[in-house]
Simulated assay, not measured.
Amino acid sequence: MHLLSKIRQDLHRIPELGFQEFKTQAYLLEHLGHLPAERLEIKKWKTGLFVKVKGTAPLKTLAYRADIDGLPIREETGYEFKSHHPELMHACGHDFHMTIALGIIQYFVKHPVRDDLLFLFQPAEEGPGGAEPMLRSEIMKEWKPDFITALHIAPEYPVGTIATRPGLLFANTSELFIDLKGKGGHAAYPHTAQDMIVAAASLVTQLQTVVSRNVDPLDSAVITFGKITGGTVQNIIAENARLEGTIRTLSVESMDKVKERIEALVRGLEVGYSCSASIDYGSMYHQVYNHHELTEEFMEFAKVNTDTEVVLCREAMTGEDFGYMLDEIPGFMFWLGVDSPFGLHHSKLQPKEEAIGAAVDLMCRYFLYKANGLSE
């Protein structure tokens, strides 16, 4: 088995939730420990890693981020190398992201370039969010790069294709949790209670008007509730209910406006249903906004110097906490085609491993170009 394929399959077996990636960190350290130590400097950060490949005469530091956590999903791929952790799965391709990063490190340890290369193995991308605290860490302050890039697998594109765009690529995102508390009672005496099942149903309906009536039609926003819980048994009026959802917007201004309107409707619900309510926005991710000149340079480089098919894609409502890093460090993110019939966060996601080698080849060529000053 090809080494990178083995690495991917090993990592696929041990998915872990955010800031619990202990086995993953240990595996990465073990693999890096087999590489020539004189060219590497490694620092642990929580359950992640900073890995510097030293340049020969560095003028800059160029960075590459790979996220490392999994998702709380029971795997249904049928892989022989399926997850060993029940109810957890690498269903967003982070096993690919890590493997590609290791492949690039392997190459540059043996083929040194002028500038330093910094690889960030970032925990907790799926939640509660690792990019922002990693960005604020003392290690990042010491090794802060001049440029940063990252990729994300894309099931809808064939292997050998990348897709990106200058400017906005991924949306602003926020979790949304609303807890309602009323007064329970016997199902036969609804007039003596405040029914939070009815209140929750009414609120979901009301919140659907926020996007259609409070967001500029030329902008885009999404409010989706994926889970509602409430009550205890069929003949007791529910005293409590909880709504769990997500907000996605293509502008910071729209995110603020959507939250303002949600809060107004919840205040009205408290009056209308004689209940109390609380709102928690949980994890919030900044938009992924690609640096125009750097993105255009990368797209042109890939077209001219590789066999990669380069697609100018549309922005997506996907969330990615890499946006926090791009807000402070020039760079870009791009989609990597992996040709899976099942999408991201699906229990049957099956990305094609040929995409790993294609990505390593592309990024090694690009870093040879960037880190040797050929783009200056």
Rank of each mutant, 00 (worst) to 15 (best):
P190L: 08
P123A: 00
C92R: 01
A238S: 10
T246R: 01
A358P: 04
E296L: 12
L62S: 06
E296V: 13
A26K: 15
T308G: 01
D67N: 05
Y189C: 09
I105F: 02
G129R: 00
I162W: 03
K6I: 09
L176I: 04
G282N: 07
L49M: 10
V210S: 09
N235E: 04
Y273W: 14
G331R: 12
E41D: 12
Y369I: 03
R261V: 10
F81R: 00
R261M: 07
N235F: 04
H31Y: 15
V310K: 01
H111M: 07
G184V: 04
R267C: 05
P72N: 11
A163K: 09
F332Q: 09
G184Y: 09
Y189R: 14
I42H: 08
L88A: 11
Q208A: 05
A66G: 08
R65L: 03
H346D: 14
E138T: 12
E300S: 13
W45R: 05
D321Y: 02
L88H: 15
V109C: 15
L294G: 02
A302L: 10
F119S: 07
L176R: 03
Y366P: 06
Q287T: 09
H291Y: 12
K348Y: 07
H31V: 13
F96N: 03
V266Y: 11
R261L: 02
R242M: 04
V222E: 06
E175S: 13
R39K: 15
G129V: 02
Y285E: 15
K82Y: 07
I262P: 08
V210I: 15
F225N: 13
E300V: 06
E260Y: 13
L207G: 09
G231H: 09
D10K: 14
Q20E: 15
K183G: 05
G167V: 00
L117K: 10
I279R: 14
L117G: 09
A302W: 09
G343I: 00
E253N: 12
I228D: 14
D146V: 02
T61M: 01
R8Y: 10
I153H: 00
I356E: 05
A200E: 06
M299E: 06
H186Q: 11
I153G: 00
G93S: 04
W143C: 00
T149W: 11
I262Y: 04
H286D: 15
V271L: 14
I7P: 00
A316L: 02
C313Q: 11
T161K: 07
F119T: 07
P217M: 10
T249A: 08
A101K: 02
L374W: 14
